[in-house]
């Protein structure tokens, strides 16, 4: 659906494993991005973003020199200094608080996925495009970990199906995306979403990323 976008979008990759970096370049090129730069650490990433002003930065969380959260800190800086650059974080493990930091000010153009998701190339490409278009892509794991932390539970009021829909909503998917994932019609999805928003006392929102924001606020991010 985004194939009609006229200009070729440009991306920067920050990933310290050379093997994976090569693979990511191929995936991004397959997805129609032009890879402006590929770097191996956070400092080089900031320099590359300043130089190329890409539409999208794909960033590994754990990078030299400390191998902890350099990627997250670089991503926060990118979002502050160049708000037009969308950021997709890749991580070895999911830490819901990283997601919270990243989503704190602005949920548009942000993604946080487990590194292994890149193997599912088609879904990964969809997530790349969604994020580059200003949408959201959260790993199902992030959503699940947020749900685990809830104690007193209005979520109990939801049906099993509604919970599935809620999780997909929180990942940043559109109604069509949710319908595809659950193999149901879009109107059925819309009905479920209305029920969920009503049961959880969430404001109605049209744009996908505002809906994500509402769900995440509810989950305590």
């Amino acid at each position: 659906m985004h194939d009609l976008t006229p200009a070729v979008r440009r991306a920067v990759i920050a990933e310290d494993s050379v093997l994976l970096r090569v693979g990511l370049v191929k995936v991004l090129e397959t997805a129609g991005f032009e890879v402006a730069a590929e770097v191996g650490d956070a400092q080089a990433l900031l320099t590359a973003v300043a130089e190329h002003r890409p539409d999208l930065a794909v960033v590994d969380v754990r990078m030299p020199p400390g191998f902890t959260d350099e990627g997250v800190r670089a991503a926060l800086e990118i979002r502050e200094r160049w708000p037009d650059t969308a950021v997709l974080m890749l991580s070895q493990y999911v830490e819901e608080r990283y997601a919270a930091h990243l989503l704190a000010s602005n949920t548009s153009g942000i993604g946080y996925l487990l590194k292994q998701r890149v193997a599912d190339v088609e879904e990964f490409i969809e997530a790349l495009r969604r994020v580059a278009d200003g949408g959201t892509a959260l790993d199902p794991q992030v959503v699940a970990q947020l749900l685990v932390r809830r104690r007193s539970d209005p979520l109990e009021r939801l049906t099993e199906r509604e919970r599935e829909v809620l999780a997909l909503m929180a990942e940043g998917r559109s109604n069509a995306g949710i319908a595809g994932a659950l193999v149901v019609s879009e109107s059925a999805v819309a009905k479920h979403i209305n029920n969920i928003l009503a049961k959880l006392d969430l404001p109605r929102a049209d744009a996908d990323h505002r809906r994500v924001l509402a769900v995440l606020r509810f989950l305590g991010v």
Binding site: G23, K26, T30, V118, V121, E122
Partner: peptide, 9 residues
């Protein structure tokens, strides 16, 4: 991961 990525590609 790189292997799975290449196979996925």
């Amino acid at each position: 991961v790189a292997l799975a990525l290449n196979l996925g590609l």
